[in-house]
Design a protein around this nucleic acid. Structure first.
Lengths: 133, 133
DNA sequence: AAAAACTATCAAGTTACTATAAGGTCAATA
DNA sequence: TATTGACCTTATAGTAACTTGATAGTTTTT
């Protein structure tokens, strides 16, 4: 199949698919005499694997690592557990950080009410205060 | 004062300060005959304003908008409220999204236990399953 | 034959820096 | 005076993962 069909099957943009190929995440597709790439079911599988990983916000580097591990089926899968656990830790840390941020922002909002002039805006005033850093 | 001193007062890197100048976020500092930038207290204020905004993860575009508004002191400050509220909404949406992600990842983790071979890794298997998209 | 639809490559833009290179300036020391 | 070290300058490239755009060749449809 050509790239157009695999975009439909994988839900990925053609440019993105070419990009993954360039990044070494995808087995090189064969080429027709005219230069067109021809894909197989294997590529569809590879792309949906990548897509699932990306939906979990794994980095391309992580995905590359996973793909590499797949080609060593008798190694211990501990590395994979570690990788995913590390990712979970990052996600959790980011959530915590964003929750702190949300509190700061809502607190900032409470400094002002609509209808003031910018000169008297409590938000701007608050943003100007010195911070102990 | 030179750039070295203002890095200490503002807590920002020299390169970053030059970058902000280039981005039009900072009043152009005067130059000495040798080309060195000379900063004043006004620049210190501007930089700590920018720094506070960045700690709240406002984009440089948002900061640019805020700076522009400051130069129109008698306009309504409603725009500022809208901007901050919009940012809060983004942060909240991101938190929700990351919480969903965290659940998916911990669920993924429960598919496998340490000590298996990669061949039998439940995580990899799970990442390969077809997703309804 | 012409137009539409598809494919190809390559380059640049996105965000907010960070790092590197290569060089000019200044103050203090040997 | 020469040199060292700290400081300043500009310009360029790299980061992540695409996305957009330009330009051009190919295939299919009208």
């Amino acid at each position: 199949m050509h790239i157009g069909e695999i975009t439909k099957l994988s839900g990925l943009d053609a440019q993105t698919i070419r990009f993954y190929e360039y990044q070494g995440l995808l087995t090189m597709p064969a080429r027709q005499a005219n230069g067109y790439r021809t894909y197989t079911d294997i590529h569809v599988e590879q792309l949906s694997f990548i897509r699932r990983c990306r939906m979990l916000e794994l980095s391309l580097t992580d995905i590359r690592a996973l793909l590499k591990l797949k080609s060593a089926p008798h190694e211990s899968c501990e590395v994979i557990n570690t990788l995913i656990n590390g990712h979970i830790a990052e996600v959790q840390a980011r959530i915590t950080s964003l929750q702190t941020l949300e509190k700061q922002l809502t607190s900032l909002m409470s400094c002002c009410a609509d209808g003031r002039e910018i000169e008297d805006c409590g938000i701007l005033a608050s943003l100007h205060e010195k911070s102990e850093h």
